[in-house]
Design a binder for these strands. Sequence first.
DNA 1: CTACACTTGTCTATATTTTAACAAAAAACA
DNA 2: TGTTTTTTGTTAAAATATAGACAAGTGTAG
Lengths: 216, 216
Amino acid sequence: MSEQNKIPQATARRLPLYYRFLNNLHAQEKFRVSSKELSEAVKVDSATIRRDFSYFGALGKKGYGYNVEYLLGFFRKTLDQDDVTNIVLIGVGNLGTAFLQYNFTKNNNTKIEMAFDADKSKVGQEIGGVPVYHIDELEDKISDITVAILTVPVSEAQNITDRLVQTGASGILNFTPARITVPEGVRVHHIDLAVELQSLVYFIKHYPLDEVDGSQ
Amino acid sequence: MSEQNKIPQATARRLPLYYRFLNNLHAQEKFRVSSKELSEAVKVDSATIRRDFSYFGALGKKGYGYNVEYLLGFFRKTLDQDDVTNIVLIGVGNLGTAFLQYNFTKNNNTKIEMAFDADKSKVGQEIGGVPVYHIDELEDKISDITVAILTVPVSEAQNITDRLVQTGASGILNFTPARITVPEGVRVHHIDLAVELQSLVYFIKHYPLDEVDGSQ
DNA sequence: CTACACTTGTCTATATTTTAACAAAAAACA
DNA sequence: TGTTTTTTGTTAAAATATAGACAAGTGTAG
């Protein structure tokens, strides 16, 4: 939806970060904030922050900065914070459980509705308020689901993905090392813990004493 | 160390991915592989793969592709697979436990040596073969540690970070939502699960039916 | 041995992202 | 009020990353 033409992907990836930090400020009853302060807090260059914000118009005031409440309200709309996205989680191992416990309820527009696992001993429980069903029930239970979190063993990744896509999922957050294949129109973000660790080690060994932060 | 001048960071982040896939091929007793095949498997454009490899010299052969064993050996050296990096993990919650169970032993140069937690009921256990110590013992136990995985509650993040830096850590893989502050020379990679989920949702809502994969 | 198909390595073009710089406006202060 | 300081929004430049194209080898098949 929306009319926002051409917000760079790099910017879009930073929006949730800004949003969360603005929430913190608001909770601390701060009224104003400058791009410089924000920069120190979220470790993003202040010019980049101003540039990011400017895609949405002139949100601040020269010599003053940004009004926290106004900015927060603006981001709430932009990030559709009032429009909850239902999410399923597949694979209730340690990683999956971590997600369920976390369960983003605080200030988010995302809610994990159900979880699935192949292990019958896990079925029937509630973890972090989320019911766990057997994976065989996947197709029966999910209908209005657009996003899935995939925390299954790598051997199951493609198979489960196919089933998710079949039922209409349009986004998958993939924590398995498998680079899954999906039809066009389905978006996959890979978070590959082993790769993250390895590349951090590589950077430390080969790019000594230098710039910090190459995340995301 | 090393003489590798100027490998782009984007390339460096992909190296572990290539390495792992080459290992798979080797295990399947494949002898050769083309950039096109690799491309399909790891979802990276084949020209990008060839370009990435070319930073290390001419590793392939025209009309043939790459010899799996040779390439694997080359990457093993490049990624220092024979030089194990010792890692500590701080915070043995669900996420931390997931890491410990995972424990990268398969084909990696990274080994989690010890874990720490503030909860005494966790101290003394071994999880995934890794002993868990009390956080008070941190400074006593770690000495040759360069990399730490941070899976503690957000409120503890900066405090623990300072202690890690104090003992000489030069890299931190930070899973807390806090954007921690470190002195120059210390490298931090943030993996922010809530942000990943939010930004996936944002992309799905605002960039419909389009390109796939915006990960890392 | 020749012809054809394949695939690299690289060159060049394009796209994306970050950063520096600064005029213009607002605030703070004297 | 007038002067100084702050800070935005934007322009322009630089840095980084991706992708198309193709010459030049190499393998393969007849």
